[in-house]
Nucleic acid binder design. Structure first.
Lengths: 159, 159
DNA sequence: AATAAATCATTGACTTTTTCAACTATCCAT
DNA sequence: ATGGATAGTTGAAAAAGTCAATGATTTATT
């Protein structure tokens, strides 16, 4: 009987392959944790008719930063044409509006409507809970450290 | 002139949106760092006719863990049918072989051929360099800390 | 001022990836 | 021995990603 320690944890046949060298790979670890988190996140956001992508667009629209679509695309690592589709949908639902840029009328500034702000606040709460669940293995200090390292890797010490 | 500090860094119009609340979101940070790393990773692996996905399958095939396709699917967070396609390709190129499981003949154990091992070793070196580039903003200690936190989030203290 | 070059959003075509339900073969429990 | 589960495979449909072309507008050049 090779299986002796299968008492309570049916959740992790992962364990066998944890010994593979790829488990030391940052890219793999990022992908895997992101995948696990996405499931929880999307499940939580579905309540509001949102997915990770539309949620992040709505989040930027809710900031006071007056982001253009191009800035959103770059920041979210998406193609500009994907942003168009996401905003089309949010705008159709009355959650955001497009306005021409003040200095540059080619650009369009996306901002949230009152309803968009309301939905965002509620979705944000749900997303936070999902994140907590995804990072349940870490304590508060560790979560802060993880986020700090991710930000530093992305943006340097200025993050 | 709103733009005063554009001397050398044309690379980061990100900075404006860094202030958005979503920049504190673990899911967003994971996605963004993974996206940035994937570009470098895939570029490095293209030399060997590999992508991140096929590379990770090849990596598992190169372990001594005798993984089945299902175990690979679970570990890599992929659908079993995607594993089929990835292995079909690698097998066609003579880099891995399928063998029936010893206890369970439904399962198929995937292992690397000699050529698969050779290519993997070289690809591994390239992937490591890509990872270094992706995490250039962190020093060695920080990289180790980041990986440790990711592993702990995924698998708990036992990682 | 006029022209040329570049940029933003958009569209549409195309490819790739993801998701899911069926199917066969095999294993496990009764 | 039968029934129910599981591993791999196939194929179809949906979603996501990539990319080139276009009109409107801005910026640079003459």
């Amino acid at each position: 009987m090779a299986t002796e320690a299968d008492e309570q944890l049916d959740i992790a046949p992962d364990e066998k392959l944890m010994a593979a060298t790829i488990s030391q790979d940052a890219g793999f670890l990022l992908a895997k944790l992101h995948a696990a988190g996405s499931v929880l996140n999307n499940r939580a956001l579905a309540t509001f008719g949102l997915k990770e992508r539309s949620y992040s667009v709505l989040a930027l629209a809710n900031s006071e930063l007056e982001p253009t679509q191009r800035e959103m695309a770059e920041f979210l690592s998406l193609d500009p044409s994907q942003i168009v589709a996401l905003i089309d949908e949010l705008e159709r639902r009355g959650l955001v509006i497009r306005a021409p840029g003040k200095q540059d009328r080619r650009a369009k500034i996306v901002s949230a409507t009152a309803e968009g702000a309301t939905i965002f606040r509620r979705a944000e709460t749900a997303a936070r809970e999902a994140e907590s669940a995804a990072l349940a293995g870490l304590n508060g200090t560790e979560i802060a450290a993880l986020k700090g390292l991710l930000r530093k890797a992305l943006w340097g010490p200025a993050a």
